[in-house]
Computed example of a mutant assay.
Amino acid sequence: MQYQQEDAEEVLSAVRQVAQSVSSGREAVADISVLVAVTSNLSLTNLDMWERLLRWEFSRELKASMPAKWIFWTQPTPFLAWIDLCSEDGFKREKTLRTLSGAAPNSFFFAIAVRRLNDWVPQVREAARAKLPIIAKDTDPELVVDVLCATLPHWSSWGRMEDKDKQALVEIASIEKVGHSLKSRILSATSGPMVSVLSQAACTETLDRYLDEIARKAIQPSVRAKAYKCLLEGKIVWCDGRKWEWTDKRYCKGQFKPILCERTVRVTTPFLGTLESAAMDRSPIVRRVAGEMLIRELEKIGTESLGLAELLASDPSPSVAERGKFALKKLVNPLL
């Protein structure tokens, strides 16, 4: 909490400096380098709070320093490209998006731009769809991946997004250099919702060719398990949103249920070789996936299934060994 308060004070100080440069009218475009430097160190996990803070403080400072209206020769307020994405004025947010060019200054402001895909003004969302893929191509892919990793686990809960808005984010993830950086991040991440990132990024085929590498080399066991399952099933599933379902209308009871989508994986790997690799993985989470797929595909595997079943049955993990023993019983008595 103390660190967040200190960050907030630094951000507020930077916003005041930007507002003062705007009010002075000395520059055609205000210098936001101080604000960029401060926001580059912020986490992307609480963007809603930071966006409200920027909007409130910048608006307050501008109004406080606004000259009298009768001074008709005062220069117009300069156009502030990135900070105006937080403006309370929808027209200004739209105009800002349509006039942006070049790379995003940091991951924070690119994340603010991505949030405009869920903006409450339809014209702002339209502008974001048009400009975000162009900006992403000019931006450092590592910054783009920072934003994707923060956004993809939660974008299905963005209630204002339409299918065409989601397509813009898919287009960003489909950029070649972004896909390669996203793969590297998924491989090397030691923590974080990388399984959700992998699942949500699956709506595009960008990561399909990397699934085998992710399955064998990713640090997080749950990520390896997800990749192996996709390869073995030949499909990938992701959440495309949530819908309300009544459980008892008499008492106004219900719950949100996920809307699941799936598609075929556009890569083929030897099923038996992939299954053997999963069965010898260092994590029981992955070996459980191997056990489940072995039981499901016993008839198709053939004679090699016996060796795999015996290997899993002797596993030190009880949950894995249970699956191996069940596979052995199925081999002895197929009617089970």
Results as ranks from 00 to 15, higher is better:
residue 75 Q to I: 03
residue 47 L to S: 00
residue 58 F to D: 04
residue 86 C to Q: 10
residue 61 E to A: 12
residue 34 V to I: 07
residue 78 P to A: 08
residue 54 L to M: 14
residue 22 V to Y: 00
residue 58 F to S: 06
residue 59 S to Y: 04
residue 66 M to E: 05
residue 49 M to E: 01
residue 48 D to Y: 11
residue 67 P to H: 07
residue 44 L to T: 02
residue 48 D to E: 13
residue 22 V to G: 00
residue 23 S to D: 02
residue 37 A to R: 12
residue 66 M to H: 04
residue 63 K to R: 15
residue 55 R to K: 03
residue 40 S to K: 15
residue 68 A to H: 11
residue 83 I to V: 15
residue 53 L to R: 14
residue 79 F to Y: 14
residue 27 E to P: 00
residue 32 I to W: 03
residue 77 T to D: 10
residue 86 C to D: 10
residue 54 L to H: 11
residue 48 D to W: 01
residue 60 R to K: 05
residue 30 A to S: 14
residue 51 E to C: 10
residue 73 W to G: 04
residue 40 S to L: 01
residue 68 A to T: 03
residue 46 N to S: 09
residue 46 N to P: 00
residue 32 I to K: 00
residue 58 F to Q: 11
residue 82 W to M: 08
residue 22 V to Q: 06
residue 85 L to K: 03
residue 53 L to F: 07
residue 47 L to V: 07
residue 42 L to M: 13
residue 79 F to L: 09
residue 61 E to S: 02
residue 83 I to A: 12
residue 22 V to I: 13
residue 44 L to G: 07
residue 65 S to V: 01
residue 64 A to V: 01
residue 40 S to N: 12
residue 61 E to H: 07
residue 55 R to F: 04
residue 47 L to Y: 00
residue 45 T to D: 07
residue 72 F to V: 04
residue 33 S to I: 06
residue 63 K to W: 11
residue 61 E to Y: 07
residue 42 L to W: 13
residue 85 L to P: 09
residue 59 S to L: 10
residue 33 S to D: 15
residue 56 W to Y: 08
residue 42 L to E: 04
residue 32 I to P: 03
residue 53 L to I: 09
residue 67 P to K: 10
residue 51 E to F: 08
residue 43 S to P: 13
residue 33 S to V: 02
residue 78 P to K: 07
residue 52 R to T: 12
residue 39 T to A: 01
residue 71 I to F: 01
residue 72 F to C: 02
residue 43 S to V: 01
residue 54 L to I: 15
residue 77 T to I: 09
residue 64 A to G: 15
residue 62 L to Q: 09
residue 44 L to V: 06
residue 43 S to N: 09
residue 78 P to W: 14
residue 28 A to P: 11
residue 64 A to D: 13
residue 35 L to D: 05
residue 77 T to V: 15
residue 80 L to G: 10
residue 42 L to P: 02
residue 27 E to T: 09
residue 33 S to T: 15
residue 74 T to L: 00
residue 78 P to R: 06
residue 41 N to G: 06
residue 76 P to I: 05
residue 71 I to W: 13
residue 61 E to V: 03
residue 31 D to T: 13
residue 60 R to T: 02
residue 35 L to T: 11
residue 57 E to H: 14
residue 62 L to V: 11
residue 60 R to I: 00
residue 72 F to Q: 03
residue 47 L to G: 07
residue 77 T to N: 08
residue 53 L to V: 06
residue 65 S to A: 12
residue 45 T to I: 06
residue 68 A to Y: 03
residue 42 L to H: 02
residue 81 A to G: 13
residue 67 P to S: 04
residue 69 K to M: 12
residue 77 T to A: 14
residue 36 V to F: 12
residue 69 K to T: 14
residue 25 G to W: 13
residue 51 E to M: 13
residue 27 E to S: 06
residue 84 D to C: 12
residue 76 P to F: 05
residue 53 L to H: 12
residue 29 V to F: 06
residue 51 E to N: 14
residue 51 E to I: 13
residue 78 P to C: 08
residue 63 K to I: 03
residue 73 W to S: 15
residue 26 R to E: 02
residue 35 L to M: 04
residue 85 L to G: 09
residue 51 E to A: 11
residue 39 T to E: 06
residue 32 I to N: 03
residue 40 S to Q: 08
residue 73 W to N: 12
residue 49 M to L: 08
residue 75 Q to M: 08
residue 84 D to R: 09
residue 36 V to N: 09
residue 70 W to F: 14
residue 64 A to R: 13
residue 41 N to H: 10
residue 34 V to Q: 08
residue 85 L to A: 08
